[in-house]
Write a protein that binds this DNA or RNA. Structure first.
Ligand SMILES: [Zn+2]
Ligand SMILES: [Zn+2]
Ligand SMILES: [Zn+2]
Ligand SMILES: [Zn+2]
Lengths: 149, 149
DNA sequence: CTTGAACCTCTAGTCACTAGAGGAATTAGG
DNA sequence: CCTAATTCCTCTAGTGACTAGAGGTTCAAG
């Protein structure tokens, strides 16, 4: 259980090796003891914390929020108001992003469906992009383009 | 119409001044002629192109995609297959992100609703983050945490 | 001609990583 | 005990799409 290498910790936590080192560098994760040769040796506490972080990241929390939540979870007797506030804010943010993406989805659907698959000049995709007047009002989307992961 | 300053172009296009300069620096927007004193002077073509870019960004297209779409729109006689392919890929990406965010939303809702608003030790928010076992399987979300200006 | 707003270039920072160079430590097998 | 393969180390730089700020110049109105 104890004395895990970084590779083993990575396998058990689902967090990539360079990401673990990155977390240490920004003080998201305690620096572990080292082997005589200087390699990191982790214990079960590190694994637990990494899983906490990973789960939080999957839910879209920023690292600052996760730091705050982690600090709170270390003080079990305190009120959880702050934790709930952070979670509600995150929920609202997610809902806002979903709403934006739904609007975007609707417009992309219209573009793709109405395309006659002919030449560019008659292409609804290009037309829609060129003429903002053709589109329903949509302002903020969820940001971040294509690649992720 | 012609000989717009960058500030006027910004106001008419809805794209911020530093962003316009950034677009020029990465060759998304043609460098305009300059005034005797060296300031940028834009014409209506620049405005049109900026609006195209802005609309595309609102729909979540990456700048590379928009460059490709812009190149296509300059050749009206070509087949629009490529444009349609790009748009369909973007649609799929948006739908994938919506699905991820819906899963995240469901879990955040459960967290927030089941919190008893007591102390941290009993807080469902913290518990859920700590115990991945408590959660329905959710893998990829839409990425990008909180802030999006 | 003076003022103040808008403009210029350049560098660096954001967020959460990811990739790669160049080398050292560990582990398994023989 | 020796070797080879794998894993580990640090460090720097790059990603996408901007944003912020310093320090200076030009423009437009009065
Ligand atoms: Zn088409
Ligand atoms: Zn639109
Ligand atoms: Zn709570
Ligand atoms: Zn979960």
């Amino acid at each position: 259980m104890s004395d895990m290498s970084i590779g083993r910790l990575s396998a058990l936590s689902g967090v990539k090796v360079p990401t673990i080192r990155y977390y240490e560098s920004i003080d998201m994760l305690d620096a572990p003891p080292r082997s005589p040769g200087g390699q990191r040796r982790y214990g079960p506490g590190h694994l637990e914390r990494l899983r906490f972080i990973r789960h939080g990241r999957e839910l879209g929390f920023g690292l600052d929020d996760l730091r705050a939540l982690q600090d709170l979870s270390a003080r079990p007797d305190q009120s959880c108001d702050e934790a709930d506030r952070i979670a509600r804010r995150q929920l609202q943010d997610v809902e806002r992003r979903i709403a934006g993406l739904e609007a975007v989805r609707a417009e992309l659907l219209r573009m793709v469906e109405r395309c006659s698959h002919g030449v560019v000049d008659e292409c609804r995709v290009i037309q829609t992009l060129s003429e903002h007047a053709l589109c329903v009002h949509h302002d903020q989307a969820g940001q971040t383009p294509s690649k992720a992961g």
